[in-house]
């Protein structure tokens, strides 16, 4: 006898409905089932019209983020049984436009990601024939944590600043900018600075640290923002004291 649990899923089909609503489904609540298994059970056996994104189901592709009982979660890494006896509510990630059901529009992030120039910038490329850029394990550790971002958008969903001000460049994009700024091979910090400091969003981040709390990969975007602010403030002081410093 398998226990069952009721999953209330947010439904929104723009061709049919003006407003999102909830639809309840009863699914088996097996010990080793994650929420995504429950959604797949619904799609396969109860209602083929339910739409959601998923792919790797091992917490690394970043597709299946949803709001579960009010908190942003990767549904492939969150167990159904943790919500027993239910019901549990599955909604789209917050702070994004909804395309359909629990699928949100992340175009805004994709543009912001490009804007921070998340690639290695060099004044001069070293020819391949000269081999690798040396980087010690300690230098790697400087930025490694920020390179672990899977772009799952849980941090944007949790971020109160992004919720109020969509212009805010946001936790993941800043963490990824810092990932390159702190990479010993990179020389592009000043170029990224123009993007990061242009908008005051970064200064309005209040360090509530919700982004870091919900990050499934321990990237610590709040720490990245904090570090950026410090280095940027230091840079301004240096510019004031040493105006001859090259831009």
């Amino acid at each position: 006898m398998v226990d069952r649990i009721t999953v209330e899923v947010a439904r929104y089909r723009p061709e049919k409905e003006a407003e999102p609503s909830f639809q309840a489904y009863e699914v088996p609540c097996r010990k080793d089932w994650v929420i995504l298994d429950g959604l797949n059970h619904i799609k396969d056996h109860l209602d083929g019209t339910l739409s959601y994104r998923w792919s790797c189901r091992m917490g690394v592709c970043g597709s299946c983020g949803m709001t579960v009982n009010g908190e942003p979660k990767l549904t492939c890494a969150t167990f159904l049984a943790d919500y027993a006896p239910g019901p549990l509510r599955v909604e789209p990630l917050r702070n994004f436009p909804i395309i359909r059901d629990v699928i949100v529009d992340i175009d805004d992030f994709m543009q912001k990601l490009s804007a921070v120039k998340p690639w290695l910038i060099r004044d001069a490329e070293k020819p391949l024939a000269e081999g690798e850029y040396r980087q010690t394990p300690a230098q790697l550790d400087e930025y490694k944590q920020f390179s672990m971002c899977i772009n799952c958008m849980l941090c944007y969903s949790a971020c109160p600043v992004y919720g109020l001000d969509p212009e805010f460049i946001g936790p993941a994009a800043i963490a990824l900018a810092q990932r390159y700024n702190l990479d010993s091979r990179d020389q592009g910090a000043r170029q990224r600075d123009e993007v990061l400091s242009k908008h005051e969003g970064i200064w309005s981040c209040t360090f509530v640290g919700e982004c870091t709390k919900v990050c499934p990969k321990h990237v610590d975007p709040a720490g990245a923002i904090q570090r950026y602010k410090l280095s940027s403030a230091m840079g301004s002081v240096k510019d004031f004291l040493m105006p001859w410093r090259g831009k």
């Binding site: 089909r13 723009p14 061709e15 799609k43 209602d47 019209t49 739409s51 959601y52």
Partner: peptide, 10 residues
Amino acid sequence: DDHSRTFNTE
């Protein structure tokens, strides 16, 4: 089940 156009994963 799904005859709609928008993000029809089925």
